[in-house]
């Protein structure tokens, strides 16, 4: 790929309106987006109001950003790093609305050992943390959980319209089949793909008026 030369006449990119720069930043992983704060005054607080956040565990481990993680970094250390990053991000980010929030945890098995962290990170699905996440993301309409070990047993969100639970399972430490209660009065689309048996999903009564396109694959029984 040919590398563009720096513009001698000045910095055109920084003169773009916030909304265009936000569109660009929305395509960056969260960590890289935050790092734009160090570019210049124009960029200093721009990331705080970007409407999309994409937190990728892989990015936090990768060497692409500024430096490599310490060699031999353990999963636990990685998890702590992720938790630390996400917590800081939540405190410092102050967009009036959020269009998209993506949390990608490829090595999800580590979640099982850190239930508190999970709640902190995606508190949206934990009733206890719900008020907290509501103030942060008060209008969430779509949620997609892929490849997760679910340490919680309730999803409650008043604004949620679409929910995808794909290849998730309950905590393996529990002997009893786990039930997941979904309370989402505005839900119109639910897609379940559960690959592990012994995991049940019950939909709270007030939510179900037969969602228009309810899809269920490979059910869960016990």
């Amino acid at each position: 790929m040919s590398q563009p030369n720096a513009d001698d006449d000045g910095d055109c990119l920084s003169t773009l309106p916030d909304c265009l720069l936000h569109t660009v930043m929305s395509l960056l992983p969260a960590r890289q987006a935050v790092q734009t704060c160090a570019l210049s005054r124009r960029w200093r607080d721009l990331w705080r109001s970007m409407p999309c956040l994409d937190i990728d565990d892989h990015e936090l481990r990768s060497t692409t950003s500024t430096t490599s993680p310490p060699a031999g970094s353990t999963p636990r250390l990685s998890w702590e790093k992720l938790e630390n990053f996400t917590t800081n991000l939540r405190f410092a980010h102050n967009a009036p609305f959020l269009d998209r929030f993506r949390l990608h945890l490829p090595n999800y098995r580590h979640i099982a050992g850190h239930p508190v962290a999970l709640e902190t990170t995606i508190g949206v699905i934990s009733p206890r943390r719900l008020p907290c996440i509501r103030s942060w993301c008060p209008v969430m309409e779509a949620m997609e959980l892929k490849n997760c070990v679910l340490e919680f047993n309730e999803i409650a969100c008043g604004t949620l319209k679409s929910l995808v639970i794909d290849d998730c399972r309950g905590c393996s430490l529990q002997l009893q089949p786990k039930a997941l209660a979904v309370t989402a009065p505005k839900l119109t689309s639910l897609c379940l793909r559960l690959s592990v048996f012994g995991f049940t999903v019950s939909l709270m009564e007030q939510m179900i008026s037969i969602p228009a396109n309810l899809q269920m694959f490979r059910h869960f029984t016990s």
């Binding site: 590398q3 563009p4 720096a6 513009d7 001698d8 006449d9 000045g10 910095d11 055109c12 990119l13 920084s14 734009t36 570019l39 210049s40 124009r42 960029w43």
Partner: peptide, 9 residues
């Protein structure tokens, strides 16, 4: 990135 886009610190 400053170099690529000619951003002045």
């Amino acid at each position: 990135n400053r170099e690529t886009f000619g951003i002045v610190n």
